[in-house]
Amino acid sequence: MDADELALIIREVRAEIGHEDMEVHIAEVIFNRERDELLIVAPDRSDKSIIIGKGGWVVGRLREKLGIGSVHVESEIDLLMRRERVKFALERLDELKGSFRKLSLLEKPLRKRLEYPVGLEFLTEESNESSDVIEEPGAAVALSGGTDSSFSLIASFNLGLKPVAFTADPGTIVLPGHVRRAVDELTASLGVRHEYISMDFSEIQMNALEGKFHPCGRCSSLIEEAIMEKIKNEGIDTVIFGDLLSTGYGSLQVTDDILRVNLPALFAASKQELKSAVSSYGVRAPSGFGCPLLGEVHRRYHHMRRYSIQRILRETRAGVLEPGEALELIWSICGSRRTN
């Protein structure tokens, strides 16, 4: 099926479900038989929105009409940006791989991402495990239990980086029981060594609950310090974080002879791609935004919500979050007002 034929079918679908008749522009159509997956590349984001339809109804009906497993829609503009970010990451990797030999394990998958910049499932498949021999543990993964860090652990394991996972434990107000269980289940299923790092979080918790500051920045800094101290004591020279924003050159950083790899950012990943990639491991994205402490701060101090919303908007501007995903997260923050 070529782009013109598919455009006509999409217009038919829009008419069937009562959407306005609009011109449908498609730059490229790619069908992956192995995955039973259709990729539709639209010229720009406005064209992408027409193909997806309100609430995803058009693309959902299209999948049913064509009888295929899944349909993904991307804009050519977004794919160009993603490729450029991966190019910058490869340049940075080339600068550092002489000092950190294990970076060679990331070069081939990065080039694969450059060639076909849609979907990250290939990073969470066991067949990607490298035959290269590296010392064990090859890298530490900061595992919070969320989608981003879970992806980082799964990908680093399957790429042959021989990871060990560390989870900062400030208490149940930040690390609730269901997240802790998810961490335990994932590390057990992979068979990787995992440790919790106990932290004194009482001062940040008290001040946040008194409305003195938004807790996320201080919490992240404290957790990062604890992880870095731990890996220094373990003699590990590489740490992997689930950061999504520091793409390109910023995805690989060296401080005090320790290599920091922001793995999702290295591959210019979107949140949607990460969720899809880890779904086969039973990893599920949280329904709301942030931890129980942040939820309580939002409930008590409405003005604090703006800082959380700013973070969501920052990820949306970077293309990490789709506008619809961002809207759901913002509503989860603002919706807490109903419990006041």
Score class of each variant (00 low, 15 high):
G145A: 08
G145Y: 10
G145N: 13
G146S: 07
T147E: 01
T147C: 01
D148K: 04
D148C: 09
S150R: 01
S150F: 02
S150Y: 09
S150E: 06
F151E: 00
S152T: 11
L153K: 06
I154W: 01
A155R: 10
S156N: 01
F157D: 04
F157S: 02
L159Q: 00
G160H: 06
L161A: 00
L161W: 04
P163E: 08
A165V: 04
T167H: 07
T167I: 08
A168C: 12
D169K: 09
P170A: 08
G171N: 05
G171T: 04
T172E: 15
T172C: 09
I173D: 07
V174R: 13
V174S: 09
G177V: 13
G177F: 14
H178I: 13
H178P: 06
R181S: 07
R181L: 06
R181Q: 13
A182G: 13
A182R: 10
V183D: 01
D184C: 12
E185L: 08
E185M: 10
L186K: 04
T187R: 06
T187W: 01
T187A: 06
A188E: 15
A188I: 03
S189I: 01
S189K: 10
L190T: 01
L190N: 02
G191M: 06
H194L: 00
E195H: 15
E195R: 15
Y196N: 05
Y196W: 15
S198E: 15
S198T: 14
S198K: 13
M199F: 07
M199H: 08
M199C: 05
D200C: 06
D200E: 12
D200I: 03
F201Q: 00
F201R: 05
F201I: 12
S202E: 12
Q205A: 15
Q205T: 15
N207C: 09
N207T: 13
A208W: 15
A208M: 06
L209S: 03
L209A: 10
L209E: 07
E210M: 14
G211R: 01
K212R: 12
F213D: 02
